[in-house]
């Protein structure tokens, strides 16, 4: 199996040198190649900014949706369930199209592509964040609430100082997952014309007609971004764990 993998990758590398490949479009040693690469990489700006903005919003919204889900009052829980079930059921691509083309017709509010993308991604992700938060908060032992109550902490302080700091440590790996997921799903916003990584690659493909090479670079771009994010999340996990022991 190992030998097979080595052979397969060697074959791929060697075939890359054959005439079928046209690495010149993204060859940094040539002028055009360098310009093309810079053009592609410039899409990282929107991919990163959009994913980060969207995840921040979705974490906040997710938490605000999760808390009523933990209420003892039926009405609050119903709100949580309804939100999660409806938002979770809409495909992200459909949500992007709906926010960009549908929302202006419905509400008169026109969003630019960036904010339409952020809104759709954040909305879609918030349902998952809500479930993650709910599970995380529910995993904290009842005794923690009772101890907080016994020293008279109110609901807000109990959440802020006792429950959430513990819950967030537990759900950090899941939050990291969501960020990675968000970065990948941001590629869908290319359909409404945001100049992020995928859109840039598509535009280059149209002018250069070298999809194989250009999309390969695109894959690598996402890979690099996501590896950086993963490393960041792991670092954060270690740091929080270290402060725990």
């Amino acid at each position: 199996m190992k030998r097979f993998l080595i052979l397969a990758s060697a074959f791929l590398l060697l075939s890359g040198c054959s005439n079928n490949w046209g690495w010149y479009v993204v060859d940094p040693t040539t002028n055009t190649g360098w310009v093309n690469l810079k053009f592609m990489a410039s899409g990282a700006y929107y991919t990163i900014i959009m994913s980060l903005t969207a995840i921040l919003i979705s974490v906040v919204v997710g938490l605000l949706v999760a808390l009523p889900g933990l209420s003892t009052k039926r009405g609050w829980r119903m709100f949580n369930r309804t939100y999660v079930e409806i938002v979770r059921a809409v495909p992200i691509l459909v949500l992007i199209l709906w926010v960009y083309y549908g929302l202006p017709a419905l509400s008169g509010i026109t969003l630019n592509v960036f904010w339409a993308g952020v809104l759709a991604l954040a909305l879609s992700d918030s349902a998952f964040q809500a479930e993650i938060f709910r599970a995380g908060i529910q995993s904290i032992a009842r005794g923690q609430y009772e101890a907080a109550q016994s020293i008279s902490l109110n609901y807000r302080d109990t959440m802020r100082y006792v429950i959430l700091p513990q819950a967030i440590r537990r759900i950090l790996p899941a939050l990291g997952n969501q960020l990675v997921y968000m970065m990948k799903m941001s590629s869908l916003v290319s359909v409404i014309g945001l100049q992020e990584l995928t859109r840039k690659a598509n535009e280059l493909v149209v002018s250069e007609y070298r999809p194989l090479e250009i999309y390969t670079v695109l894959v690598l771009e996402y890979l690099v971004l996501i590896l950086i994010v993963s490393a960041g999340v792991r670092w954060l996990e270690r740091r929080l764990k270290a402060s725990d022991t």
């Binding site: 009772e146 101890a147 016994s150 902490l153 100082y161 440590r169």
Partner: peptide, 26 residues
């Protein structure tokens, strides 16, 4: 005040922080 069988200290806070939380916030 109440003392519990399982102590129910806040595990993410130091002893000092456990003790100061109520006096500060409440």
């Amino acid at each position: 005040g109440m003392v519990f069988q399982q102590f129910n200290l806040f595990p993410h806070l130091t002893v000092m922080e456990n003790l100061c939380l109520g006096p500060r916030r409440v």
